[in-house]
């Protein structure tokens, strides 16, 4: 579904991402972990066109995304969330969902409303439907951001950047459940950046570890966390 070939991003002399080769199968939920500053967010930015890679290529469902601007990537089914939720804060919760629907340019207003109401119901946000998004708690904002992508009929691959950071356990469970549900019922592929190992264990059969902008190792979570290099990357070499 999603594949990168030799993806590299250089900021001046700093290599934020170096030669990343990653391949995620259709319907997979992949975890992307690594210490702070490993280049995880840069990687998501490259995938979604927020930043242009210095070299390398990105493929989505057999077509290259190179040279595509962010909005055309979104319309091809590649959506994302942001680590610090970028909601439209002065707009209502409902409007935040509707914009996502219309942005990808399909369906009627009635479809959009039905879908939004359904999602809000599932997420337990119905009573906040007409409140400004700025009134939501941090966790609710993260949840609303996640729902945004599910508004899009043609969503195929959803990139979540630290979706669980600062989210309380109950909301976190709701999010995990929604991800599972959309993965199973609609075969949506996920790439989840997170530091929360327990959630990654629940969701992801495979994880990729990034450190210093490079892929360190790829495999099942328990496998990679037992790896000496990964422990070094997280804790520093003096510990091993």
């Amino acid at each position: 579904m999603l594949e990168t070939i030799g993806l590299t991003k250089r900021f001046g002399g700093l290599f934020a991402n170096t030669d990343i080769n990653l391949s995620i199968a259709e319907g997979e939920i992949r975890g992307l972990i690594g210490p702070n500053g490993a280049g995880k967010t840069t990687f998501i930015n490259l995938l979604t066109g927020v930043e242009e890679p210095s070299s390398g290529d990105i493929w989505l469902a057999g077509k290259t995304l190179l040279g595509q601007v962010p909005y055309t990537r979104a319309r091809r089914g590649l959506l994302r969330t942001f680590q610090v939720p970028k909601l439209f804060r002065n707009m209502t919760v409902l409007e935040n969902l509707l914009i996502q629907h219309f942005a990808c340019g399909q369906g009627t207003q009635r479809d959009a409303r039905l879908r939004a109401d359904g999602l809000l119901e599932m997420a337990g946000l119905t009573r906040l439907r007409d409140s400004p998004a700025s009134h939501l708690s941090g966790g609710q904002q993260a949840l609303l951001q996640l729902l945004g992508g599910f508004m899009v009929e043609r969503l195929r691959c959803y990139l979540l950047d630290e979706p669980f950071a600062g989210v309380n356990p109950i909301v976190k469970d709701t999010m995990v459940e929604l991800i599972h549900q959309y993965n199973r019922s609609r075969g949506i592929t996920f790439l989840i950046v997170s530091h929360e190992m327990s959630v990654i264990r629940q969701l992801c059969s495979r994880v990729t570890v990034l450190a210093e902008g490079k892929v360190l190792i790829e495999g099942a979570l328990d496998e990679v966390t037992a790896n000496a290099q990964v422990i070094d990357a997280y804790l520093g070499k003096t510990w091993s």
Binding site: T48, G49, V50, V69, P70, Y71, R73, A74, R75, L79, R80, F82, K86, L87, F88, R89, N90, M91, E95, I99, Q100, A103, C104, G105, G148, V152
Partner: peptide
């Protein structure tokens, strides 16, 4: 209205 609040987020949403 959305663009007035975040130019990046409207683009990644598909606008």
């Amino acid at each position: 209205r959305a663009a007035a609040q975040s130019r990046i987020a409207v683009q990644t949403a598909g606008v």
